[in-house]
Design a protein around this nucleic acid. Structure first.
Length: 633
RNA sequence: CGGAGUAUAGCUCAGCCUGGUAGAGCACUACGUUCGGGACGUAGGGGUCGCAGGUUCAAAUCCUGCUACUCCGACCA
């Protein structure tokens, strides 16, 4: 048998044996133990090892619960891979057990969040999962929250609920503890389990009923202080998601009654995301597609055609019209008829209907339409009979010319010239319509969804649309809860003032799922460095046969661990190489070292990053330097 | 809450229509062979067929009720 390369200096002395050593002597010297407290080469059923589990583990002692088959009830990738990699197991609908491997990832995400929140001056607290209903009565939110709030009763008949969020509890705490404006601002956060009794939990960890959230609540003496802390939280969130290694976008969110730039969602970009978000290619602008403003820069071209009535008996949709008459779709207009708001319906002659016009290739935005004063809320499309009664033609032949009901047009429609639209007579369209020549320009509004390539509303660049997973949300709450719960402090004049509040959430468990949605390939997870369960996996090719592989692995395991790396040593003797490599790829350890007899002859090891396509050969004594450069950079 | 579906071994599923000995693959245990990309052989362990009723000489199979879970929708953000 060839001897070990001289470059490997063994600090642990191992006697070569052709078979397992006998059970260790109880008085074994500590320096003969490896980093995880196990005697090198000790077989599977040894004692539990209490040492250094944060850093090191050997697979023979670890619950590596990987499965080959994709579970049938998992539809999204993150759910499939989290089950397959042995990170989680379902307990019941929307409830999951976290196995050791998954928990390592979860803890890393938590730790990054914790460090950055602390860095931003927030103070960690821990509030109960179970909350008294009294507080929810006091805030007035109990009825509004409905059945999503899981209510429970204790043995004395007192009402409690499982906390879906903690505004009430923190506000109650703060009103008892803070008394002076001098103490403000303060920002409290916790990383805690939440429960929301979702109507339909789905997508595994992405939308479960029980989940872990980092929620923070800030309290202020005035609005300016709230705005300042909000800005700090915005930056903190950026730092957190940067450190997590995720591709994300802060997105302007619907601020409802609060207004201004008082709310942002943080989205991890992934094709499976539930939300479509639009962002500028050359500025920070980003918004939910439903909320993104559709602007229409430019001017209307002068009329070039005369308006003509054309028989279009077989064209009932824009697609048919475009196909049959070789029209560019940008020269067509869609006319949608919706119910009018009651008040305006009385005043107009529209029979309770309003026409909304968007370009043929555009889509009506329900939310924007609903916000128009003329339009009934909730939005309701008119049925065929109503349309025929009011206009005298069926859908498919509707247009703005000589229209008998009120009409609102999209901004981009207002810029069209020489366009085609229905003639309000069955089977007929007008071509070559021009505003202000053939008919007056109706009221103009933003009616449509933005599309890829639109000009960015901030005037810089064009919009790209991608799907995102909402993982964070920051909010300037104002005094909604502090008012209801009377959370006041005395100001400098000794007057009681209600504290404006901010709240800031991150879905910690959802971040883990989102990270996988964004980082996977056909073999498994490709973790970002910062949240991988382990940094390095050590894979000997044939531990059973090769004493040399075992010696080198034990040595590397000890050296890498004492250098501070988190190492998973795949010391399973019964598994073949293929199984080990497949597992390593499935669980997505970023750095892999394969140890083989063949290459040890030249003093070489194989290195491969999870996202690499090829192996890199390293000499045994340069491994530490190499990894140092590779990981720390 | 509306619609659709599923429930049989740890996992993925067959068997049910047409009632009569509980099945396969993977996983697990033992032994042997194999050993650089999810090995092979031999032997074995493991299921009150979701629960409760009913029909029948006989029910995984037919009937009724219940429960849980999944998918689509509404809801939530």
């Amino acid at each position: 048998m060839p001897s070990l390369p001289v470059s490997v200096s063994l600090s642990v002395s191992i006697t070569r044996r052709s078979s397992y050593p006998p059970a260790p002597h109880p008085q074994q010297r500590p320096d003969q133990r490896s980093c995880d407290g196990l005697t090198p080469g000790f077989p599977y059923n040894g004692p539990l090892s209490p040492d250094n589990q944060d850093l090191a583990m050997r697979t023979s002692r670890y619950l590596l619960a990987t499965v080959k088959q994709t579970p049938s009830d998992a539809v999204v990738i993150s759910h499939q891979l989290m089950l397959r990699a042995g990170m989680v197991r379902k307990l019941s609908s929307g409830l999951y057990n976290w196995l050791p491997l998954g928990l390592r990832v979860l803890r890393k995400v938590e730790q990054i969040i914790r460090e950055e929140m602390d860095r931003a001056g927030a103070q960690e607290v821990l509030m109960p999962v179970v909350q008294p209903m009294e507080l929810w009565e006091e805030s007035g939110r109990a009825p509004a929250y409905g059945p999503e709030l899981l209510r429970i009763t204790d043995r004395h008949g007192n009402a409690f609920c499982l906390g879906p969020t903690h505004e009430e509890v923190i506000t109650d705490l703060v009103r008892n503890e803070l008394h002076s404006y001098r103490q403000l601002p303060m920002n409290f956060y916790q990383i805690q389990t939440k429960f929301r009794d979702e109507i339909r939990p789905r997508f595994g960890i992405m939308r479960s009923r029980e989940f872990i959230m980092k929620d923070a609540y800030s309290f202020h003496a005035d609005q300016a202080s709230l705005a300042a802390t909000y800005a700090v939280m915005y930056d903190t969130y950026c730092r957190i998601f940067d450190r997590l290694g995720l591709d994300y976008r802060p997105v302007a969110a619907d601020t409802g009654a609060i207004g201004g730039s008082a709310s942002h969602e943080f989205h991890v970009l992934a094709s499976s995301g539930e939300d479509a978000i639009a962002f500028s290619d050359s500025s920070d602008y980003a918004a939910n597609v439903e909320l993104a403003e559709a602007i229409a820069p430019g001017e209307r071209a002068a009329p070039g055609e005369t308006m003509t009535l054309v028989d279009t008996p077989d064209a009932r949709t824009i697609a048919e019209l475009v196909a049959q008459f070789k029209l560019p779709v940008e020269k067509t207009v869609k006319t949608l008829i919706v119910a009018a708001d009651h008040v305006s319906a009385d005043q107009e002659t529209g029979g309770g209907l309003v026409a909304l016009l968007v370009r043929g290739d555009h889509e009506l935005n329900d939310i924007k339409a609903e916000k128009l004063p003329q339009v009934a809320s909730p939005l309701r499309f008119a049925d065929d009979e109503e349309i025929r009664a009011a206009i005298g033609a069926g859908p498919g032949s509707l247009g703005p010319v000589q229209l008998s009901i009120p009409c609102v047009i999209d901004r981009s429609v207002a810029l069209m010239s020489d366009f085609a639209a229905g003639a309000n007579q069955d089977g007929k369209h007008y071509f070559g319509i021009n505003w202000e020549r053939d008919l007056p320009l109706p009221e103009i509004a933003d009616l449509r969804n933005v599309v890829e390539g639109d000009a960015s509303p901030d005037g810089q660049g064009t919009l790209t649309i991608k799907r995102g997973i909402e993982v964070g949300h920051i909010f300037q709450l104002g005094t909604k809860y502090s008012e209801a719960l009377k959370a006041t402090v005395l100001d400098e004049r000794g007057k009681k003032v209600v504290m404006p509040m901010g709240c800031y959430g991150i879905g910690v468990t959802r971040v883990v799922a989102a990270a996988i949605e964004q980082n996977h390939d056909d073999r498994g997870i490709t973790w970002p460095e910062a949240i991988a369960p382990f940094q390095i996996i050590l894979v000997p090719i044939n531990l059973k046969k090769s004493v040399r592989e075992k010696e080198v692995c034990e040595q590397l395991y000890a050296d890498l661990t004492s250098a501070g790396y988190e190492v998973l040593y795949d010391d399973r003797e019964k598994e073949r190489l293929g199984v080990k490599l497949a597992d390593a790829e499935l669980i997505g350890i970023p750095h892999r070292i394969v140890v083989s007899e063949q290459h040890l002859d030249e003093g070489q090891l194989e290195y491969r990053a999870r996202r690499d396509d090829d192996n890199t050969m390293l000499s045994v004594d340069e491994v530490l330097d190499f990894l140092e450069r590779r990981i720390k950079s």
